[in-house]
């Protein structure tokens, strides 16, 4: 029997006294699992160099996170999986032959500037992986747009040829790549962006787990397809090409940097889709998913503020 006379052996706290078993690291590791198809496809298509790039980015992202947390005298939380996601996502947006030292630099910037400078997990306004990528695109434009031409599975042929991405082909030469190549991934492009199939597989898994809101990928992809169709472009091509799929399922859906209201998520996704379309059709830089997401990330606090849901019974009770 409990001693009972004093408060010594009882725990007193305010309700609720029950919590779900879901944790932040649980969510993060599920996202990592969802990235496995894209990782495997990139290794299959581009070989071990792709694996090395992903490893380098991931390791340095985690190391940077730990180092900055030490410097800030904060609890080191590198096991929560969030830095790992940033590193891996950044790697997946890089060209296969991207110099490893620059990739590492991008990864360090992504975590140090994109995330920790704002206060760490949950406080960053921009998707950190995209901050890293934006840094690399601006600082090393040549390296970031030198694409390995896909010539067959690893080792089948010379793999140092350079080629253009399908969006570049379309933009500069008016050449369209066929859907099947775009879907499975045997095209030139970034590590994790080439195979729509692999991204969809992971994206559907996250939808099933409830870790991303369907409104965001649907509104991003839907608005790009619709707008492309309206100006006489091939909507399916636009959906499958470039970084759109990866962006729609894994970047725009980042919980920290997307709105928390349902209406807000529609507005967020539609705006991203609109900007992607604008950049692709009228811009000088066809691979515009990254800038589209970063720009709308910036508007998230505003979107949240103006889309707060109507509360139950929001009509004043009489007198």
């Amino acid at each position: 029997m409990m001693g009972g006379k004093t408060a010594v052996d009882t725990i007193v706290s305010s309700s609720p006294h029950l919590q779900s078993k879901e944790t932040i690291s649980g969510i993060m590791y599920t996202v990592l699992i969802a990235l496995i198809p894209a990782v495997l496809v990139s290794i299959y298509l581009f070989g071990m160099k792709s694996l090395y790039l992903m490893l380098a980015c991931s390791i340095f992202a985690v190391a940077t996170e730990g180092a900055v947390q030490k410097l800030r005298q904060k609890e080191v939380t590198i096991n929560d999986g969030s830095a790992l996601i940033t590193g891996l996502l950044l790697a997946l947006t890089l060209p296969p032959d991207f110099p490893m030292i620059l990739a590492i630099l991008g990864s360090v910037i992504a975590i140090a500037i994109g995330k920790q400078a704002y206060g760490g997990l949950g406080h960053n306004p921009f998707n950190p992986a995209l901050v890293g990528r934006a840094f690399l695109v601006i600082s090393f434009p040549v390296e970031m747009t030198t694409w390995t031409k896909w010539v067959g599975p690893v080792g089948a042929a010379i793999d140092t040829q350079t080629g253009a991405t399908p969006l570049n082909w379309m933009k500069t030469e008016g050449i369209m790549t066929d859907y099947s190549a775009l879907f499975w991934g045997n095209i030139s492009g970034s590590l994790g962006e080439v195979s729509a199939f692999a991204i969809l597989l992971g994206g559907l898994y996250l939808l099933y787990k409830g870790y991303i809101d369907w409104r965001i990928p649907l509104s991003v992809l839907g608005s790009v397809a619709l707008l492309a169709f309206l100006v006489g472009e091939d909507p399916l091509f636009h959906l499958l090409a470039g970084g759109l799929m990866l962006g729609a399922f894994f970047m725009a859906t980042d919980m920290v940097t997307s709105p928390i209201t349902k209406l807000g998520r529609w507005i967020f996704g539609l705006t991203i889709g609109f900007l992607v379309w604008l950049f692709r059709i009228y811009g000088g830089y066809p691979e515009g998913v990254m800038f589209a997401i970063l720009l709308v990330n910036m508007a998230v606090p505003l979107i949240d503020r103006y889309t707060a849901p109507r509360i139950l019974g929001e009509v004043k009770a009489r007198g």
Partner: peptide
Amino acid sequence: GGLNEESGKIIMGGPMMGKTQHTLD
């Protein structure tokens, strides 16, 4: 039948909205 262990939480009501107590008396 009594308690399984001597420490823990005593809740008056359910675990979602109930109030914890510091005594059984």
